[in-house]
């Protein structure tokens, strides 16, 4: 049994630029353009630890490497899960991977959702589109430690009914009596009898105590902007709001310069930021 386990300390010792090889366990279709990749360490016995919110650099042999947030359960160490949208050459190549294929992995990198800091508080998760993927590990953690938190609210917006991620799990979570889970779509096509409209619409009336809430947000920047404003309108302090940011990334360790966001490096200072720390620059265009 291998004891390969990535901790931050060990990452410093190992060369962070060198990938480790993982094997594809399965490729699951989520939506027409999104799929989930389960990876296991090469020898089958490795363990992989990460904190909710962190990401990996995934390399497809000869094609290239992209940053992908980890979207599995942080308590599961044997399998590393990524939900990926096929939007470029590398991610499209990943969609065509088969069980047994090998993928290069560097990571985990980056900051985490503040699930410890939020103990004893209400948790409000607001996500849009593929933004649910990087938040799912935090939600798993909260579910596994349900008694550590007060009210738990998950608000999720998707483009259409067919773009809803993790549909079965959402149904399951919606059925729980101690969770408030709302799903909405921007555009209703077909037989959808659920909510239509933007995800921010739930914020004014969701059940949470603004003064004792930790809010976790991930989605397109415009969606996050409106979400933050709605939370602030409810009385949530910007220091209690956490967002996950995205920028171009080549190295994930602060060398390549691509992910700079003001004085921050998304790769090592983020991707998860306390909003009060980036509030001054969040609205600056083309920063």
């Amino acid at each position: 049994m291998s004891t390969l386990e990535f901790t931050k300390e060990q990452m410093v010792l190992a060369d962070p630029m060198l990938p480790t090889w993982f094997r594809v366990q399965c490729v699951r279709r989520e939506t027409h353009d999104t799929f989930t990749l389960d990876l296991a360490c090469q020898d089958g016995g490795g363990r992989f630890s990460f904190a909710p919110g962190q990401f990996n650099m995934l390399y497809v042999f000869g094609v290239g490497e992209v940053p992908i947030s980890i979207s599995g359960d942080p308590a599961t160490k044997e399998i590393v899960v990524h939900t990926i949208r096929a939007v470029g050459a590398v991610t499209r190549a990943m969609r065509n991977l088969k069980r047994g294929d090998q993928v290069g992995v560097r990571g985990p990198f980056g900051s985490a959702w503040p699930v410890k800091e939020a103990v004893g508080r209400d948790i409000v998760i607001v996500t849009g589109g593929i933004g649910l993927a990087p938040l799912r590990p935090a939600f798993y953690h909260v579910l596994a430690h349900r008694n550590d938190y007060n009210r738990v609210v998950l608000l999720y917006g998707a483009r259409t009914r067919d773009d809803i991620l993790y549909r079965d799990e959402l149904k399951l979570w919606r059925g729980e009596l101690d969770l408030e889970v709302e799903v909405t779509v921007d555009s209703s096509v077909g037989r959808w009898r659920g909510n239509v409209g933007v995800v921010t619409k739930f914020i004014p009336r969701a059940e949470f105590d603004p003064g004792n809430t930790t809010a976790l947000i991930c989605g397109p920047e415009v969606m996050m902007r409106f979400t933050i404003q709605a939370l602030v309108d409810r009385g949530v302090e910007t220091r209690d709001i956490h967002v996950s940011m995205e920028r171009n990334m080549k190295c994930a360790v602060g060398f390549c310069g691509h992910c700079q966001y003001g004085s921050k490096f998304i790769c090592k200072d983020g991707p998860v930021f306390r909003f009060s720390e980036i509030e001054d620059i969040f609205g600056i265009r083309e920063l």
Binding site: D33, G129, A158, R159, D163, V198, T200
Partner: peptide, 16 residues
């Protein structure tokens, strides 16, 4: 109106 504008933006769509 704001919500409608956000819907019009089709935020979750990415051209591929």
């Amino acid at each position: 109106l704001q919500a409608t504008r956000m819907q019009l933006l089709d935020l979750y769509h990415v051209d591929t």
